[in-house]
Amino acid sequence: MKAFFIRIYDIYQFIARFFREVFIPPYEYKEVFNQFFEVGIRSLSIISLTGFITGLVFTQQSRSSLAEFGATSWLPSLMAIAIIRALAPLVTALIIAGKVGSNIGAEIGSMKVTEQIEAMEVSSTNPFKFLVVSRILATTCIAPVLAAYMGFIGMMGAFVNVLRNEQTSLTAFFEQAFIKISFLDVYILVLKSAVYGFTIGVAGCYNGYNADHGTVGVGRAANTSVVVSMFLIFIEEMIIVTVVNKFR
Protein backbone atom coordinates (compact mmCIF):
# COMPACT_ATOMS: atom_id res chain seq x y z
CA MET A 1 0.00 0.00 0.00
CA LYS A 2 2.84 2.35 0.83
CA ALA A 3 4.53 1.37 -2.41
CA PHE A 4 1.35 2.34 -4.25
CA PHE A 5 1.40 5.89 -2.90
CA ILE A 6 5.11 6.21 -3.59
CA ARG A 7 4.36 5.20 -7.17
CA ILE A 8 1.56 7.77 -7.45
CA TYR A 9 3.86 10.47 -6.14
CA ASP A 10 6.53 9.37 -8.61
CA ILE A 11 4.10 9.68 -11.51
CA TYR A 12 2.96 13.05 -10.24
CA GLN A 13 6.58 14.21 -10.27
CA PHE A 14 7.05 12.83 -13.76
CA ILE A 15 4.07 14.85 -15.00
CA ALA A 16 5.21 17.95 -13.13
CA ARG A 17 8.62 17.60 -14.78
CA PHE A 18 6.91 17.44 -18.17
CA PHE A 19 5.12 20.74 -17.56
CA ARG A 20 8.33 22.33 -16.32
CA GLU A 21 10.47 21.25 -19.21
CA VAL A 22 7.97 21.74 -22.00
CA PHE A 23 8.23 25.52 -21.63
CA ILE A 24 11.97 25.85 -21.06
CA PRO A 25 14.22 26.32 -24.09
CA PRO A 26 16.07 24.88 -25.92
CA TYR A 27 13.13 23.27 -27.72
CA GLU A 28 13.63 20.05 -29.64
CA TYR A 29 11.56 21.17 -32.65
CA LYS A 30 12.89 18.57 -35.00
CA GLU A 31 12.23 15.66 -32.68
CA VAL A 32 8.75 16.94 -31.80
CA PHE A 33 7.94 17.16 -35.50
CA ASN A 34 9.27 13.64 -36.07
CA GLN A 35 7.03 12.33 -33.32
CA PHE A 36 3.94 14.12 -34.68
CA PHE A 37 4.59 12.35 -37.92
CA GLU A 38 5.28 8.98 -36.25
CA VAL A 39 2.10 9.01 -34.15
CA GLY A 40 -0.04 10.18 -37.05
CA ILE A 41 1.28 7.81 -39.68
CA ARG A 42 1.51 4.80 -37.41
CA SER A 43 -2.22 4.69 -36.66
CA LEU A 44 -3.75 6.32 -39.74
CA SER A 45 -4.63 3.18 -41.71
CA ILE A 46 -6.13 1.23 -38.82
CA ILE A 47 -8.10 4.27 -37.70
CA SER A 48 -9.50 4.71 -41.21
CA LEU A 49 -10.52 1.07 -41.41
CA THR A 50 -11.96 0.85 -37.90
CA GLY A 51 -13.78 4.17 -38.24
CA PHE A 52 -15.47 3.21 -41.46
CA ILE A 53 -16.53 -0.23 -40.28
CA THR A 54 -17.75 1.11 -36.94
CA GLY A 55 -19.92 3.69 -38.69
CA LEU A 56 -21.27 1.16 -41.14
CA VAL A 57 -22.01 -1.62 -38.67
CA PHE A 58 -23.36 0.63 -35.96
CA THR A 59 -25.82 2.15 -38.41
CA GLN A 60 -26.90 -1.26 -39.62
CA GLN A 61 -27.47 -2.50 -36.07
CA SER A 62 -29.44 0.59 -35.02
CA ARG A 63 -31.56 0.46 -38.13
CA SER A 64 -33.81 -2.39 -37.03
CA SER A 65 -34.68 -0.82 -33.67
CA LEU A 66 -35.49 2.51 -35.27
CA ALA A 67 -37.46 0.77 -38.02
CA GLU A 68 -39.87 -0.58 -35.39
CA PHE A 69 -40.95 3.02 -34.74
CA GLY A 70 -40.75 3.94 -38.40
CA ALA A 71 -38.02 6.36 -37.46
CA THR A 72 -35.16 5.40 -39.75
CA SER A 73 -35.03 9.03 -40.86
CA TRP A 74 -33.46 9.74 -37.49
CA LEU A 75 -30.50 7.55 -38.32
CA PRO A 76 -28.15 10.31 -39.54
CA SER A 77 -28.53 12.48 -36.47
CA LEU A 78 -28.50 9.52 -34.11
CA MET A 79 -25.30 8.24 -35.65
CA ALA A 80 -23.74 11.68 -35.52
CA ILE A 81 -24.40 11.83 -31.78
CA ALA A 82 -23.11 8.33 -31.18
CA ILE A 83 -20.00 8.75 -33.30
CA ILE A 84 -18.96 12.30 -32.52
CA ARG A 85 -19.80 12.27 -28.82
CA ALA A 86 -18.73 8.77 -27.87
CA LEU A 87 -17.33 6.37 -30.42
CA ALA A 88 -14.76 8.41 -32.30
CA PRO A 89 -12.78 9.77 -29.34
CA LEU A 90 -12.96 6.51 -27.39
CA VAL A 91 -12.14 4.10 -30.19
CA THR A 92 -9.36 6.36 -31.48
CA ALA A 93 -7.84 6.57 -28.03
CA LEU A 94 -7.94 2.79 -27.59
CA ILE A 95 -6.29 2.28 -30.96
CA ILE A 96 -3.56 4.82 -30.22
CA ALA A 97 -3.01 3.22 -26.82
CA GLY A 98 -2.52 -0.18 -28.43
CA LYS A 99 -0.52 0.95 -31.38
CA VAL A 100 1.48 3.96 -30.26
CA GLY A 101 1.46 3.57 -26.48
CA SER A 102 3.01 0.12 -26.56
CA ASN A 103 5.56 1.34 -29.06
CA ILE A 104 6.57 4.26 -26.87
CA GLY A 105 6.89 2.00 -23.82
CA ALA A 106 9.04 -0.51 -25.70
CA GLU A 107 11.16 2.09 -27.44
CA ILE A 108 12.00 4.17 -24.39
CA GLY A 109 12.27 1.03 -22.27
CA SER A 110 14.88 -0.49 -24.54
CA MET A 111 16.75 2.80 -24.69
CA LYS A 112 16.77 2.77 -20.91
CA VAL A 113 18.07 -0.75 -20.44
CA THR A 114 20.74 -0.43 -23.14
CA GLU A 115 22.04 2.82 -21.62
CA GLN A 116 21.06 4.94 -24.64
CA ILE A 117 19.36 7.42 -22.34
CA GLU A 118 22.56 7.87 -20.36
CA ALA A 119 24.51 8.14 -23.62
CA MET A 120 22.28 11.07 -24.54
CA GLU A 121 22.88 12.68 -21.23
CA VAL A 122 26.66 12.62 -21.69
CA SER A 123 26.17 14.11 -25.16
CA SER A 124 24.79 17.40 -23.83
CA THR A 125 21.23 16.36 -24.51
CA ASN A 126 18.45 16.36 -21.99
CA PRO A 127 16.92 12.92 -22.65
CA PHE A 128 13.71 13.83 -20.85
CA LYS A 129 13.11 16.70 -23.21
CA PHE A 130 14.35 14.89 -26.28
CA LEU A 131 12.41 11.67 -25.74
CA VAL A 132 9.62 12.22 -23.23
CA VAL A 133 8.45 15.77 -23.86
CA SER A 134 8.38 15.30 -27.61
CA ARG A 135 6.35 12.09 -27.39
CA ILE A 136 3.82 13.37 -24.87
CA LEU A 137 3.34 16.51 -26.97
CA ALA A 138 2.82 14.37 -30.04
CA THR A 139 0.21 12.04 -28.55
CA THR A 140 -1.62 14.97 -26.93
CA CYS A 141 -1.82 17.02 -30.11
CA ILE A 142 -2.36 14.25 -32.65
CA ALA A 143 -5.07 12.32 -30.77
CA PRO A 144 -7.70 15.07 -31.32
CA VAL A 145 -6.80 15.28 -35.01
CA LEU A 146 -7.13 11.53 -35.41
CA ALA A 147 -10.39 11.46 -33.42
CA ALA A 148 -11.89 14.16 -35.62
CA TYR A 149 -10.71 12.25 -38.65
CA MET A 150 -12.28 9.06 -37.34
CA GLY A 151 -15.49 10.98 -36.67
CA PHE A 152 -15.58 11.98 -40.32
CA ILE A 153 -14.71 8.49 -41.61
CA GLY A 154 -17.29 6.95 -39.27
CA MET A 155 -19.97 9.27 -40.63
CA MET A 156 -18.96 8.22 -44.13
CA GLY A 157 -19.52 4.62 -43.07
CA ALA A 158 -22.93 5.56 -41.77
CA PHE A 159 -23.67 7.42 -45.00
CA VAL A 160 -22.84 4.37 -47.10
CA ASN A 161 -25.31 2.30 -45.09
CA VAL A 162 -28.03 4.92 -45.34
CA LEU A 163 -27.38 5.31 -49.06
CA ARG A 164 -27.85 1.60 -49.60
CA ASN A 165 -31.22 1.56 -47.84
CA GLU A 166 -32.78 4.97 -48.37
CA GLN A 167 -32.72 7.74 -50.91
CA THR A 168 -30.24 10.35 -49.83
CA SER A 169 -27.37 12.51 -50.99
CA LEU A 170 -24.17 13.42 -49.21
CA THR A 171 -25.32 16.97 -48.47
CA ALA A 172 -28.76 15.89 -47.33
CA PHE A 173 -27.22 13.27 -45.07
CA PHE A 174 -24.80 15.64 -43.41
CA GLU A 175 -27.45 18.34 -43.03
CA GLN A 176 -29.62 15.91 -41.12
CA ALA A 177 -26.67 14.54 -39.22
CA PHE A 178 -25.52 17.86 -37.82
CA ILE A 179 -28.89 19.05 -36.60
CA LYS A 180 -28.16 17.60 -33.18
CA ILE A 181 -24.43 18.34 -33.14
CA SER A 182 -23.32 21.64 -31.69
CA PHE A 183 -19.99 23.37 -31.64
CA LEU A 184 -19.72 22.27 -28.01
CA ASP A 185 -19.68 18.63 -29.11
CA VAL A 186 -16.73 19.22 -31.40
CA TYR A 187 -14.97 21.18 -28.70
CA ILE A 188 -15.46 18.34 -26.21
CA LEU A 189 -14.24 15.79 -28.74
CA VAL A 190 -11.01 17.72 -29.09
CA LEU A 191 -10.59 18.26 -25.38
CA LYS A 192 -11.39 14.67 -24.47
CA SER A 193 -9.02 13.29 -27.07
CA ALA A 194 -6.25 15.56 -25.90
CA VAL A 195 -6.70 14.19 -22.37
CA TYR A 196 -6.60 10.61 -23.67
CA GLY A 197 -3.54 11.37 -25.83
CA PHE A 198 -1.77 12.91 -22.86
CA THR A 199 -2.61 9.83 -20.77
CA ILE A 200 -1.22 7.50 -23.43
CA GLY A 201 1.98 9.54 -23.79
CA VAL A 202 2.58 9.75 -20.05
CA ALA A 203 1.86 6.05 -19.48
CA GLY A 204 4.19 4.96 -22.30
CA CYS A 205 7.01 7.30 -21.38
CA TYR A 206 6.78 6.73 -17.64
CA ASN A 207 6.85 2.95 -17.94
CA GLY A 208 9.64 3.03 -20.51
CA TYR A 209 11.70 5.52 -18.56
CA ASN A 210 11.43 3.39 -15.44
CA ALA A 211 11.96 0.03 -17.13
CA ASP A 212 14.31 -2.08 -15.08
CA HIS A 213 17.25 -3.97 -16.41
CA GLY A 214 16.95 -6.66 -19.02
CA THR A 215 14.73 -7.39 -21.98
CA VAL A 216 11.95 -8.60 -19.69
CA GLY A 217 11.67 -5.03 -18.44
CA VAL A 218 11.12 -3.76 -21.98
CA GLY A 219 8.25 -6.14 -22.67
CA ARG A 220 6.69 -5.32 -19.34
CA ALA A 221 7.00 -1.60 -20.00
CA ALA A 222 5.20 -1.96 -23.34
CA ASN A 223 2.48 -4.10 -21.85
CA THR A 224 1.92 -1.97 -18.75
CA SER A 225 1.73 1.15 -20.92
CA VAL A 226 -1.21 -0.25 -22.87
CA VAL A 227 -3.09 -1.75 -19.94
CA VAL A 228 -2.74 1.31 -17.74
CA SER A 229 -3.65 3.81 -20.43
CA MET A 230 -6.74 1.84 -21.51
CA PHE A 231 -7.88 1.56 -17.91
CA LEU A 232 -7.35 5.28 -17.31
CA ILE A 233 -9.08 6.22 -20.57
CA PHE A 234 -12.27 4.44 -19.46
CA ILE A 235 -12.18 6.16 -16.09
CA GLU A 236 -11.56 9.53 -17.70
CA GLU A 237 -14.39 8.90 -20.16
CA MET A 238 -16.80 8.26 -17.29
CA ILE A 239 -15.71 11.37 -15.44
CA ILE A 240 -15.87 13.60 -18.51
CA VAL A 241 -19.31 12.31 -19.57
CA THR A 242 -20.67 12.87 -16.07
CA VAL A 243 -19.31 16.39 -15.86
CA VAL A 244 -20.36 17.37 -19.37
CA ASN A 245 -23.91 16.09 -18.86
CA LYS A 246 -24.23 18.30 -15.79
CA PHE A 247 -23.52 21.34 -17.95
CA ARG A 248 -25.25 20.41 -21.13
Binding site: E107, S110, M111, V113, T114, E115, Q116, E118, A119
Partner: peptide, 9 residues
Protein backbone atom coordinates in the same frame (compact mmCIF):
# COMPACT_ATOMS: atom_id res chain seq x y z
CA UNK B 1 29.01 2.01 -22.38
CA UNK B 2 28.83 -1.63 -21.37
CA UNK B 3 25.99 -2.18 -23.85
CA UNK B 4 27.55 0.12 -26.49
CA UNK B 5 24.40 2.27 -26.24
CA UNK B 6 24.18 3.03 -29.95
CA UNK B 7 20.91 4.76 -30.84
CA UNK B 8 18.84 2.03 -32.51
CA UNK B 9 16.71 4.45 -34.45
Amino acid sequence: FQSSALYDG
